[in-house]
Design a protein around this nucleic acid. Structure first.
Length: 583
RNA sequence: UCCGAGGUCGUUCAAUGGCAGGACAUCGGACUUUGAAUCCGUGAAUGGUGGUUCGAAUCCACCCCUCGGAACCA
């Protein structure tokens, strides 16, 4: 074999330091039983592509090392959480292609957590503080000064037990008492300055109803839940690095053995995108998008509706790597991954978004030429479909220029172009309305070119898409673009907001689109390429008779890029000129 | 200012004391019945200063920069 070298230097993809840690732990015999991870969303919002990174990491670790990954809803704050979110989260994880070993809820552990808390009180490691929220905050100290001990620290075990029962049983109103761990108010690790374990909340929990009034705080609940489930590697994002000491302290305090290990990685940030539940919620609530699944949203539901296959998100997460340094991934990488997948997956049809009529004058009225056209230029996998050429066809308005710029290959007066898989036509006359708008192109065709080949082998550089007027399917097409115009939408001027960077052209409607007949009656969710335009997905807003399509992403367009950069240069030159003449 | 986590091409991830490499982006070329896809190619980086070493992105010291932390949120 000639590939000794390639196997020796196997391309093992981008880095994943978490997988490295697991591998080392396994090699050193530090993993009791099987590798076990969990994906722990709080059911207070929809999942987005940032969560996909965590999902792929956690489920991927379990798969790679033959272990298991649980889905755990971290539902310790009934005020913010709801079943609506539980359902959407499950749907999204499944759609991404992952199946959890067990579906768990932190609320499943409320009883155990409570018993452990009582144990901590008995051991003098927790106490009830009866001061106000403000007092507690004020005595915590800050970065530079130590905290001051709470008077609650001196209460006896029995006193604490009795007070804790008041909290649990209903005698104490919300805010009257909290349970705190007795650690060290002088610690330089602020998280260790007697953190709260429990607060009293008068809220109905979406699962436990009114069974409980005391609700555990994240830090108290999370590590213990990990321990209960036998999680070996508890992977979380970087902002929890500051909780690491407390995570370990709680585990040690209840003698969890073996103890899970918390590992922090950098969450995903994407250019031209906002990924924070709070801000996504704001977009939804302010009506700036149509909902959580608006095709412009970076939510899993939004991307799904936009036309992203789940494999694209997984493969994207695989190639961005997992590291510890905060970074912003270029959205172009996502778009590249998308196009790569769609190019292989989608059959290519023809659709005209902004139709302009072409009449082929020397093509006999009533005549119909039926042709077989391939559904993929590069492979046989998609087969062919029939298209029909008649006297009247639709072409893209953008494909005609009355006064063509240089290197223009498409329709222009006197110019010959190819109708893809159809024939060669030449523009003879332009018909305009009173307003001076072009309404019709009168052309002639070369009957010898039926199918699109030049009979004498002459070079025809321009090839455009078209749709036969008779039998065309009317459709609405929505052209989506990036939601924000700024690379980092969070980089706004003082007094402004990320909304200042909203792209006013993030969606454009083409309500008069004409599609080839083969596109009629396709199922919602079907993905196709429109030749020369991009990839499109049938949306649920449409019907078999009146389809609605979302543009998932445009094809790469090096011509448009060239035209634009030429224009930019011109503008710059003009500006310079203007400046120098001013002087 | 205290504690903690980080700092490698434009971006992102590698190289774990031994020739700084891949992907995306950029630019150029070939091909083309999608100005697509594909193929080929170009340019581009170790935050700084000292030290250890035959040899340092990697080890040590000091400095600089970025991010996170003082919720009865997760």
């Amino acid at each position: 074999m000639s590939d000794d070298k390639t196997t020796e230097r196997a391309d093992d993809g981008p880095g994943n330091f978490v997988a490295d840690i697991v591998r080392e732990d396994l090699a050193a015999g530090r993993v009791p039983g099987q590798v076990t991870t969990r994906f722990p969303p709080e059911p207070n919002g929809y999942l987005h592509i940032g969560h996909a990174k965590s999902i792929v990491l956690n489920f991927g670790l379990a798969a790679e090392f033959g272990g298991a990954c649980n889905l755990r809803f971290d539902d310790t704050n009934p005020a913010a959480e709801d079943v609506e979110y539980v359902d959407s989260i499950k749907e999204d994880v499944r759609w991404l292609g992952f199946e959890w070993a067990e579906e768990r809820y932190t609320s499943d552990y409320f009883q155990q957590l409570y018993e452990w808390a009582v144990q901590l009180i008995r051991e003098g490691k927790a106490y009830v503080d009866s001061r106000t929220e403000e007092e507690i905050r004020a005595t915590r100290g800050d970065f530079h000064s130590p905290g001051v001990n709470s008077p609650g620290r001196d209460r006896t075990v029995d006193e604490n037990l009795a007070l804790f029962e008041e909290m649990r049983g209903g005698a104490a109103p919300p805010g009257a008492h909290v349970l705190r761990a007795k650690i060290d108010m002088q610690s330089k690790d602020l998280k260790l300055r007697d953190p709260l374990l429990y607060r009293v909340l008068d809220a109905k929990h979406h699962r436990t109803g009114n069974d409980w009034r005391i609700y555990p705080m994240y830090d108290w609940a999370h590590g213990q839940s990990d321990a209960i489930e036998g999680i070996t590697h508890s992977v979380c994002t970087l902002e929890f690095v500051n909780h690491h000491g407390l995570y370990d302290w709680f585990l040690e305090a209840v003698a969890a053995d073996p103890a899970p290990q918390q590992i922090e990685f950098a969450r995903l940030a994407l250019s031209y995108t906002v990924l924070s539940k709070r801000r996504l919620l704001q977009l939804v609530e302010d009506g700036l998008v149509s909902g959580w699944d608006d095709p412009r949203m970076p939510t899993i539901a939004g991307l799904r509706r936009r036309g992203y296959p789940p494999e694209v998100l997984v493969s994207f997460c695989d190639r961005i790597g997992v590291a510890k340094s905060n970074s912003i991934v270029d959205v172009a990488l996502l778009e590249h991954t998308l196009r790569e997948d769609l190019n292989a997956r989608c059959p290519s049809y023809m659709g005209v978004l902004d139709p302009l009529k072409v009449v082929i004058e020397n093509l006999e009225e009533g005549a119909a030429h039926e042709l077989d056209a391939p559904l993929s230029p590069d492979s046989e996998v998609h087969g062919t479909r029939k298209i029909t050429l008649r006297r009247e066809v639709w072409v893209e308005r953008d494909d005609f220029m009355e006064e063509p710029i240089k290197k223009w290959r498409r329709l222009a007066p006197g110019k010959e172009v190819r109708l893809r898989y159809g024939c060669l036509i030449t523009v003879k006359d332009i018909v305009k309305n009173d307003a001076g708008e072009v309404t019709e192109l009168r052309c002639t065709w070369d009957p010898e070119s039926l199918g699109g080949d030049a009979p004498d082998g002459r070079k025809v550089r321009g090839t455009i898409h078209w749709v036969c007027a008779e039998g065309a399917v009317d459709a609405e097409v929505r052209l989506y673009d990036r939601l924000f115009t700024a690379e980092n939408p969070m980089d706004f001027e003082e007094g402004g907001s990320f909304l200042d960077h909203l792209n006013p052209e993030s969606v454009e409607l083409r309500s008069n689109a004409k599609l080839e007949p083969a596109l009629g009656g396709l199922d919602v969710g079907t993905r196709v390429q429109f030749e020369r335009l991009g990839y499109f997905c049938f949306d649920r807003d449409g019907s078999a008779e009146a389809p609605v399509l979302n543009r998932t992403i445009a094809l790469r367009d090096s011509w448009a890029k060239k035209v634009k950069s030429a224009q930019d240069q011109k503008n710059q030159k003009n500006q310079k000129k203007a400046r120098s003449t001013k002087k």
